[in-house]
Design a protein around this nucleic acid. Structure first.
Lengths: 341, 341
DNA sequence: TGTATTGTCGAAAACGATTTAGAATGGCGG
DNA sequence: CCGCCATTCTAAATCGTTTTCGACAATACA
């Protein structure tokens, strides 16, 4: 079917080794034979068999991505889908294909690390995963190049949004519009959640604002129903926030629904803000005020860093790469005018 | 690093070939040595090197997916992301990994077919692609097992929604609510669009309804801005529809925005319906009336069919597989009460 | 002229598996 | 006791590459 290097070498009247060297730019082959080989390769449409090459060189030019979640795969998750898309584009630009890593391939039960070895990926990108799982730890402490998104491990490169600054900017924005009773529904417990929550608390404290009991509650990322419950509860307490910051844009929809079910309209009676900057949600009205994460750059950087780790292992060191966020001033935070204080 | 079959064979005191046969269930190896080998394999954590195996057997247990679009990758496309997710789950359940197919990997310029050969995928699933492109035709007329989603080729298995019935059900639903002035903004020209448009026209004709000039217009899938323009134009014509069917849920948002910008409220002044059943959009209010596509089954069937084509090439024949759709009665189609006619 | 050096090329050994063909062993009947 | 068959194993070829090492000729140098 496909033409092999042996056939090509016969057409050229050369040995297999010379042909290989000609194609791979070795110096010990004359300019003219190199040209002969190359043009013949072009003519016959020769492509080296990636399996054979990988077997010999231990390089597959394949990157693993671990983008799974408990409830849903990362694919149906807007934020991660966007990151993955960008990762894919950048990886391909650099000559790498990508393969999904998982366990339970077929009947056989492999750990993530085993799967990576089995497929001989050159490196792997972790995101949207239960970072505490033993399997993940095994992979992270293994010898395969790793970059993570949104979670920091010892001695591993991590790409994440400037969550601290993002939350800070959001709180300040809300503050500047006159809000003083600001509540925060966080996402489920995770490294990112911790950063955001502490940033929220710090910023509030810097602004001299109290965070009364019940104004900081835990919800679940990407789960409107959970947010619905939490917000409903929040709004039926005696002390009501004038503005609620939601775990993310999608979850925010649940919070908005809860408010509307209680007869409140947004932003007249209650202000809300999200996190992520999901494109689709920006088409809604009123347009959601939110902190946009730069998924394009996150994915891009992840791929870039991973390829560096692979191709220049000695000169590349683990880094923490922070990607700036951008506040999208929508229409869901009401301007209360001059502060009442 | 990873233990090879040679090391395993030495630990067992057997030859490499015997070990291989023991692991692969050949009959000419005694029950006890088979057990010895298997337990030793388990102990040492042996995993066959997929590259070496694939090189010899011509089977990679890798499926290619071609999920690209001109403007955006399929990943950020809700419908296709959901299909892909389901495809992935089913493929993995059957022991296959998946790899994205594209052109322009690295600096080298490959056609889709070349990329498939290069990566030695066992089969490939096409979706969300410009099915007219020469490259795609090359792949489809090649010798690699192929299934397509939403486009029918000669002699190739295709999985698609029952678009005809879907549109028909939607039109009838709208009709039953008293609407007679029904307009349709289609998606861009494609096989699926053709089916939907003709179904729309047939159903309208069956119901004895006219489709006046301007009531059938072409928009673009997944493009709210395009829909915005088209709807704006539609609504400023002398004869106005009472209900507009949109290309898909996401594009519908643009149409809704156009109507609202013209001072109309939905569904009081104008009814609309979408197509796809995007989960996220169902969280909005008013809830969009739409035709849900069963992305779960579409992806599942695609994987199932592809694996059949690969594993039982002689007994599997190209099929057209239609997946039922489901009408989601939302709140965007107003009930006009008893028909005026 | 003899010896290094340089420039090109090819033979052969890997990489880690599968698979074909054949070798060794033992039991059995004739 | 010999031949034959079944059973169980192994040797070796193979998949398509890359890469080391040595061969050979031509050139440079002394």
């Amino acid at each position: 079917m496909a033409v092999t290097i042996r056939e090509l070498s016969q057409k050229c009247g050369l040995s297999v080794s010379t042909v290989s060297k000609a194609l791979n730019g070795y110096s010990d082959v004359s300019a003219e034979t190199r040209e002969l080989v190359r043009s013949m390769a072009r003519q016959t449409g020769y492509r080296p068999n990636s399996l054979a090459r990988a077997l010999k060189t231990n390089r597959t030019f394949n990157l693993g991505v671990l983008f799974v979640d408990d409830n849903q795969s990362g694919l149906t998750h807007n934020y991660f889908a966007a990151v993955l898309d960008s990762f894919k584009v950048e990886a391909e630009r650099r000559g790498y294909d990508i393969t999904f890593i998982n366990h339970n391939i077929g009947k056989t039960n492999m750990t993530y690390l085993e799967h990576c070895r089995y497929r001989n990926v050159d490196g792997v990108c972790l995101a949207c995963v239960d970072f505490q799982a033993g399997e993940v730890m095994e992979l992270v402490s293994g010898d395969i190049p790793v970059v993570t998104i949104d979670h920091l491990f010892n001695n591993r490169t991590c790409i994440q949004s400037e969550n601290r600054q993002g939350v800070q900017a959001l709180v300040k924005y809300v503050y500047d519009r006159g809000h003083r009773e600001i509540a925060y529904v966080s996402g489920a417990k995770s490294a990112v959640t911790d950063i955001r929550v502490t940033s929220f608390l710090h910023t509030m404290s810097d602004l001299g604002l109290a965070v009364p009991d019940g104004f900081l509650q835990q919800g679940i990322y990407q789960d409107p129903s959970a947010t619905y419950q939490v917000v409903k509860h929040m709004l039926s307490a005696p002390r009501r926030p004038s503005c609620i910051l939601m775990p993310d844009d999608y979850a925010a929809l649940g919070g908005i629904e809860a408010a509307e079910d209680m007869g409140l309209t947004i932003p007249e009676d209650l202000s809300v803000a999200g996190f992520d900057g999901i494109r689709l949600i920006q088409r809604l009205s009123p347009r959601l005020t939110t902190i946009a994460q730069d998924t394009l750059r996150i994915g891009q950087e992840a791929a870039r860093q991973l390829v560096h780790l692979i191709e220049r292992p000695r000169t590349t060191y683990p880094e923490i790469i922070s990607i700036p966020t951008r506040l999208i001033p929508g229409e869901t935070v009401r301007d209360l005018g001059a502060p009442a204080r």
